[in-house]
Design a protein around this nucleic acid. Structure first.
Lengths: 367, 367
DNA sequence: TTGAAAGCGCTAACAT
DNA sequence: ATGTTAGCGCTTTCAA
């Protein structure tokens, strides 16, 4: 039996290894497990022992190694979050809110970027090696194959601001159908005659649901179906779509864009290039309430998605799934509210003020 | 001696443990270390062995556990990134670029949020427990105590878009002094007479350096020193600062805001509230080239900070520090360029077109 | 309450 | 090239 040989420090030799629980134990004159217990919340340690341990830890600059802890607990307390196209102001705010909310629940966020149209599976695949406890898909495309692998590995997947049928993933999204319906009703109440809709990505649930809600109201109200263009949720593409939509004859007097990011592009083109008086000659409405929407120069009427409520829901669902992985996916629709500003003509009735903000309720709510 | 008892699966019992390298080894009929080697890049394994291993891994759905690997290699391949106030469009783009660039280098980004004014030490302290390989401070305040702890733990700290003397942290920043000087020269060449400067956070290096550069040029040119207000790098505060600056008599005809986020607020107030013709009655210039700056409705003249170049520099410095932790901090200033757009009056000479963009060079460059 | 001992899943000598 | 062995730093039985 050889004497316990001091391991050779990594090349360079300068690097001082950080102190371990053993070092602390030695200094405090207790066992290593006592140190571990002193840093564990519900563990049974005497106050005296803990005191000695904390003191020794302090003098050594000891920090529990979460990697080692993860290895044994099989919980990393890390949530993988996939994002793409943070250019759209709505996402950074979601991300920040997620990071803060998960932080308060004792989790950290590991970031994954994937370009918007690209399949993010390879990156997400890589995440799993980090043994993240759960995955939140904020903006990336995803395949059902990925869900299944996660499902099988016992890793909850939560989609944020998108839904999916035929998947084991949970989801949190805004009320796209109702929101779009409200927008259509608002525009109809404003007496508009020629409608237009700007789609985002064709295969995104947000675009599909918002378009469905918008069209269904128009149809039911006997109004003509909207002219249509595709902005791919991209600023430049949306600008081009706006030119296409508003450039010809018989210009629409009402344009609903599937999100604010595109609506902001539309305002830039309508006012900046075409010289239109937005809010009088043309009404433009978006969806989200992204960063610049309330700025005076845009004053964008939009369906507000409540970021904090949605994020809280994501955290709640994630923790719930972490606690009991079994069972069907959890799905949540979070209601929003129309923020009435100046980018769209006001109807003569139904306007109400709430918390200093203007909103609107259809005068004869039915059903 | 007891028979090796199968550990009891975590409560619930549904959870299938993910396969380990041992499982793969057994199925492939090789040793566990052969499996490890098959998943290690430069390791010596025969093609045949690797084939068998990969095949077995495939059928079992094996994924190497990076947590276990980290424990032994003492490298997590995770970079802690601290952000705050993603509302300022410049930061999300930086963050996305960082995530992508580090991803290409085989690292992932662990996110930490701290509010802008708050001391982020407690959060950052927490990071260290995850044994991140390095820390990048994108937006958060930080104390020299934190640097020292990292230094001592052998964890490189890299500041992005801010600098510090008296710290062991490396840094990457734009050329604030030169940029601000160029802006002053540009405004002077445009024949402006009454200057104003909007500061961000007083103790931020960006504000200090940009103000110093701006003022130094004005002084040297014999121009009056600028009127001054503080916008705290916050949209609303900047709007208020704008009212204060432009509201009175003897209105300035040139306003330099310490970043674009505040300049955008200034344009919103100047045009939206005060009805000023931005670019003719008042020239407004920013710094960064944040997301909405080029939008037609702002067309903000600004000093462009090259995000990709800065981020590449951060990655390079981080990797360099990871390779040789010893030595003094690495500091890099990345030059930018003035993007001439329409928010500021054009000088009669010095304008040049580059890559389809308009920029400007002082006609008589001296010293 | 406390300590001893057994591993979590992997990498890295060391032998063969 | 491959297998054996010894841990990485921690949590968690199990006895005392």
């Amino acid at each position: 039996m050889s004497t316990r040989q001091k391991p050779i420090p990594p090349a360079g030799g300068e690097e001082r290894r950080s102190p371990t629980s053993h070092d602390v134990a030695r200094l405090a004159g207790v066992s290593q497990s006592a140190v571990s217990r002193s840093f564990t919340d519900g563990a049974s340690v005497s106050a005296e022992t803990r005191r000695k341990v904390i003191e020794a830890a302090q003098t050594l600059g000891y920090r529990p190694n979460l990697v080692a802890r993860s290895l044994i607990t099989r919980r990393s307390r890390i949530i993988g979050v996939a994002v793409a196209y943070l250019e759209n102001q709505f996402y950074p705010r979601m991300l920040e809110a997620l990071s803060i909310a998960f932080g308060q629940a004792g989790y950290r966020v590991l970031l994954f970027s994937a370009s918007q149209n690209e399949n993010s599976d390879p990156v997400l695949e890589e995440v799993l090696r980090y043994r993240v406890d759960a995955v939140v898909l904020l903006s990336a495309m995803h395949s059902s194959r990925f869900d299944e692998e996660c499902q099988q590995a016992g890793i909850p997947v939560v989609l944020l601001n998108r839904t999916t049928r035929s998947s084991s993933a949970s989801s949190v999204a805004g009320d796209n159908v109702e929101g779009a319906r409200t927008i259509a009703a608002f525009l109809a109440a404003g007496g508009h005659e020629r409608y237009a809709f700007m789609a985002g990505l064709e295969n995104a649930s947000t675009t599909q649901e918002r378009e469905a809600g918008f069209n269904s109201f128009l149809a039911k109200a006997g109004l003509p179906s909207p002219r249509r263009a595709v902005g791919h949720y991209d600023f430049d593409a949306a600008a081009e779509a706006t030119r296409q939509l508003l450039g010809g004859t018989e210009r629409p007097d009402a344009l609903f864009c599937a999100n604010d990011h595109m609506a902001l592009a539309a305002i830039n083109v309508a006012r900046g290039e075409l010289g239109l008086d937005v809010g009088r000659e043309i009404s433009i409405i978006g969806f989200d309430d992204a960063g610049p929407a309330p700025w005076p120069l845009f004053s964008l009427t939009t369906y507000v998605q409540p970021i904090d409520a949605m994020v809280d829901e994501v955290v709640a669902i994630t923790l719930e799934k972490l606690a009991k992985p079994a069972g069907p996916p959890l799905r949540k629709i979070v209601p929003g509210a129309l923020a009435v500003r100046r980018s769209a003509r006001l109807p003569s009735s139904g306007l109400i003020e709430r918390d200093g903000h203007l909103t609107w309720r259809p005068p004869h709510e039915s059903g």
